[in-house]
Design a protein around this nucleic acid. Structure first.
Length: 242
DNA sequence: AAACCTTACAACCGCACTTGC
DNA sequence: CGCAAGTGCGGTTGTAAGGTT
């Protein structure tokens, strides 16, 4: 017996949402909060599938959505994050406040792909389109042989100790993006300034941000080039390995 | 003005993952 | 441990709007 359908398709509306449906959904979520999407449509008096309600809320009705055109800074950030993360739209959206994964995905497919192609860059690999394709160059985060050694070294695992028969331990290469770690009690580096994540990623500048950082304005020569996002020379060696 | 084409984006679908029993 | 339900994600489709012929 297979999985039951997520909703009773015979009794649900499809297609574009009406103003009345939007109002009902917003009113219900304001009163009861998000969650339990499966039971929400019935409780809110909507003839919609729970998934459809969730999508409508997340992508269109949420009050914290930015809407409007993407800025040049957002464009560049999306390109750089995509080169790091690939088609992980939800992760990319997590770095762009007020933007949704669906919005970024659509924007990528309609605008940025073309923009990169016009620059002679393959949007899938982020490499020049005229560059010969090989296994070592097709994936954004492929670790080449010489770089594997760096990884092993960074993990504190001496390769010489592992015989060819010995199986290397399974590595969890789940990547987490975070600013360089600074211990709260450690003396401050970088000219006595702490690193602000928003500023170093270019999401805010020193004046907008409450970090009071004067040296972290996007583009400033004093600011940290986090993972090479500013220079374009991606530095995944510094990505934290769990 | 009409037909056709292109673009943009909302919405759907199916699969994978997580969680609870 | 296995199963089912619930949820989230990414790929794809449908269609309205605008542009071109």
């Amino acid at each position: 017996m297979g999985r039951s359908p997520c909703c009773e398709k015979a009794h649900t509306n499809k297609g574009a949402w009406t103003k009345e449906e939007d109002d009902r959904l917003v009113a219900y979520i304001r009163a009861h909060g998000e969650g339990c999407w499966r039971s929400l449509p019935k409780a809110a008096g909507l003839l919609r599938c729970g998934k459809s309600c969730r999508l409508r809320w997340i992508n269109y009705l949420r009050p914290d959505l930015k809407r409007g055109n993407f800025t040049e800074e957002e464009d560049e950030l999306i390109i750089k994050l995509h080169s790091l993360l690939g088609n992980k739209w939800s992760l990319i959206a997590g770095r762009l406040p007020g933007r949704t994964d669906n919005e970024i995905k659509n924007y990528w497919n309609t605008h940025i792909r073309r923009k990169l192609l016009s620059r002679g860059i393959d949007p899938a690999t982020h490499r020049p389109t005229n560059e010969p394709v090989s296994d070592a160059t097709t994936m954004p985060l492929v670790v080449r042989e010489e770089e594997k050694k760096d990884f092993i070294g960074a993990l504190g695992c001496d390769e010489e100790k592992s015989t060819s028969q010995e199986r290397l331990p399974d590595l969890n290469l789940e990547l987490r993006i975070s600013p360089p770690y600074q211990h709260p009690t450690e003396p401050l580096k970088s000219g006595g300034k702490r690193v602000c994540f928003s500023c170093s990623l270019g999401l805010m500048d020193g004046e907008q941000c409450s970090c009071n950082s004067t040296s972290s304005t996007a583009g400033s020569s004093n600011s940290i080039d986090f993972l090479g996002l500013k220079s374009g020379n991606l530095d995944y060696i510094r990505l934290e390995i769990k």
